[in-house]
């Protein structure tokens, strides 16, 4: 269907996949895998591929429960964030969020490796940053997605995002 709009195509694939069409599932996987990888990698870091795989397994296991195909994007995002945080914790990669150790503004290390900055944050901090800076969510939406109060997201941002951005925008 060459003239089909991307949203219409995705909705069609979701409905077909929900009916058990595994070809539609495979096409949907091609659509979702890059997005899930972008969500999972900043949170799970070295376990990004594990997290993305687990997230996609969870997506396809529960796809039949998705009532509105138009809600796919947000639904997948919530699953991916949850799996990425879980995977990061399970891998015991969590380090204390010692933000005083962040490189100073203008430090050439920053331009060398954003991973090093993310590495110093907890998975929850990384999730908040990613949701704000990559996904462009407001605090209320990010809080709902993470299952915490808006105030918690604000304080996490205060501790993580501001320092992060100060370090990055010189």
């Amino acid at each position: 269907m060459p003239d089909e709009r991307p949203d219409d195509r995705t909705a069609r694939l979701v409905r077909a996949a929900q009916r058990g069409d595994t070809l539609a599932m495979a096409e949907l996987l091609d659509v979702l895998a890059p997005y899930v990888g972008r969500v999972c990698a900043p949170i799970a870091l070295g376990q990004g591929a594990d997290a993305a795989q687990e997230a996609l397994v969870a997506v396809f296991k529960s796809l039949r429960t998705l009532k509105d195909p138009a809600a796919l994007h947000g639904w997948v995002r919530a699953i991916a964030v949850r799996e990425a945080i879980r995977t990061a914790h399970r891998a015991a990669r969590t380090v204390p969020a010692d933000l005083s150790a962040l490189p100073a503004r203008g430090d050439p290390q920053l331009s060398a490796d954003i991973r090093d900055v993310l590495d110093r944050l907890s998975p929850e901090h990384r999730a908040v940053l990613m949701l704000r800076d990559v996904e462009g969510l407001d605090e209320r939406t990010a809080a709902a997605l993470l299952g915490v109060r808006t105030g918690t997201v604000k304080s996490r941002l205060h501790r993580a995002r501001d320092t992060f951005r100060k370090a990055w925008t010189s």
């Binding site: 996987l29 890059p34 990888g37 972008r38 990698a41 397994v57 990613m130």
Partner: peptide, 24 residues
């Protein structure tokens, strides 16, 4: 500044696991 956020791409074997996970 264009921030190079980490990304990950799933290789075909991982993709196969993801799809098969959703097939009873």
């Amino acid at each position: 500044m264009n921030e190079p956020w980490p990304i990950t791409d799933l290789d075909p074997v991982r993709r196969l696991h993801a799809l098969a996970g959703g097939i009873r």
